[in-house]
Structure formats: C-alpha cells, structure tokens
Amino acid sequence: MKKLFLLTFIFLLTFVNSAFAHTHIESSSPGDGEVVKEELKEITLTFGGKLEQGSTFTVQNSGGEQVAVENITIADNQLVGTLSSPLENGQHYVKWDIIGADGHPISGNFSFTVELPVSEAPAEETTQEEQVEKQDDTNEEVQSNVEETDVETTNEEKTEEAGQSNGSSDAMPIIIGVLIVIILVSAFFMLRRKK
C-alpha cells in the first residue's frame, strides 16, 4: 500500500510538472521590471514548454497606445518580435497569449521601462534661435543700409537741387545785366532816330 501511494504521488508530481511546464514564462528580453537604456530592436519571450502556432504578444506604451511589432516568430519555446520603430521613453507593457503543447491557451503580461539618453534637441532649438537672431540682425543691417542709401540719395538730390538753384541764382545777375544793356541800347537807338 505504501508503494502504491508513493508511485501514485511520483506519477502525479511528474504529470503535473510536465503538464504545467509551459504555463509560465521563464525569461524575457527585456525582463520584467528592467530599465532599458539602449535602443531596443526586438523582444524575446522564453517559455517553459513548446509553443503552438497562434501564440503571440502585443506591446503598449504608458498611454495605452499599441506599439507596432512586426514578424512575430515562434521557435520551439520562444516568441520573438521585431520592433518597427524605436520605443519612446517611459513604461511599456507586454501582453502575451500562447497556446501550449497540450492545446491550452495561456496569457500573461509584464512591463519594462525605456530610459534612452535625451537627444540634444534644446541645443538645436538654441541654434535655431541663434539663426533667427542672426537673420534679424541681417535684416536690420539691410534695413539700415537701405535707409542710409535713401538718406544719401535724398542728400544728393538736395545737393543737385541746391546746385541748380545756385546755378540759376548765379545766372540771374548776368541775365539782368544783359537785359539792362539791351534796354539801354534800344533806348539809345530810339533817341538817335528821333534826332
């Protein structure tokens, strides 16, 4: 009786272990709770038993938006999916749904955090601000040059007008003198005729 009980117990223990070997996830890359500091190209889930076709997983970001995972492949006890684009910083949730070798569907989930170094976006913004300031300075210089040119043109025009008016005022006494001479000559000839 003790032998039968012992054999039954060993059989049940072995059967339970083999039956539930696939029910848990053994490991993942990235792991549950892991902080990823480099760009992630793929996610790998390793299970305790062989997986059947139809096993899959999805990834969501902290906002609940689904992240595109391409080419999810099943290789014996592994699910491997390729990420179509780099993950944003923050927490991400992986939900897996597998079909074990015995045909039973099993699901579960885990999460990891992405903390990639922040790119030098503020420096680029500063550069853009500097470019805008340089452009403004250039525009001000151009405007200043245009105003100076306008002032020079106005001064030249005034100088020309002044020169013309000076020329006409210089010629005025000569014209008056010529007119006086003509009047005097005419008066002289008129007086002479009368005699």
Rank of each mutant, 00 (worst) to 15 (best):
A123M: 02
V118W: 07
V146N: 14
K41V: 06
N77D: 12
V142L: 14
G108D: 07
A21Q: 11
E88Q: 14
I43P: 04
K134Q: 10
L184G: 06
T113H: 10
D102A: 08
S62D: 11
E156Q: 12
S111L: 06
S186M: 07
L40A: 01
G33P: 05
L191G: 13
T46S: 15
I25W: 08
N89A: 07
I10D: 08
S28Q: 03
A19T: 10
F15D: 03
S186F: 06
N61W: 05
E141G: 01
I43F: 09
T126L: 14
L6C: 10
L45R: 06
A123I: 01
K37D: 10
Q128N: 12
E115S: 13
T153M: 13
K3E: 11
V151H: 10
S107T: 06
V59T: 05
I43R: 10
I10H: 09
N71V: 01
N109M: 12
T138W: 10
G177N: 08
T153A: 15
F5K: 14
I74H: 00
D102C: 00
Q131F: 03
G63I: 01
E38M: 03
P30C: 09
D102P: 00
S107K: 12
G108S: 08
T14E: 01
G90A: 10
I74G: 00
S111T: 14
I25F: 05
R193M: 07
A171Q: 15
G81Q: 02
F20D: 06
T149H: 13
G33L: 07
N77Q: 10
E125K: 11
T113I: 14
F11A: 15
Q60R: 12
T154D: 15
S28T: 04
I182Q: 02
D76Y: 15
G167K: 08
E52W: 05
I106G: 02
F189Q: 05
E26N: 04
A121V: 11
S111W: 08
K41W: 07
S29E: 09
E124H: 14
F11M: 12
G64S: 11
E34V: 02
D32Y: 04
D32S: 13
Q164M: 11
F188D: 05
D137S: 13
D97Y: 03
L40W: 01
S84D: 05
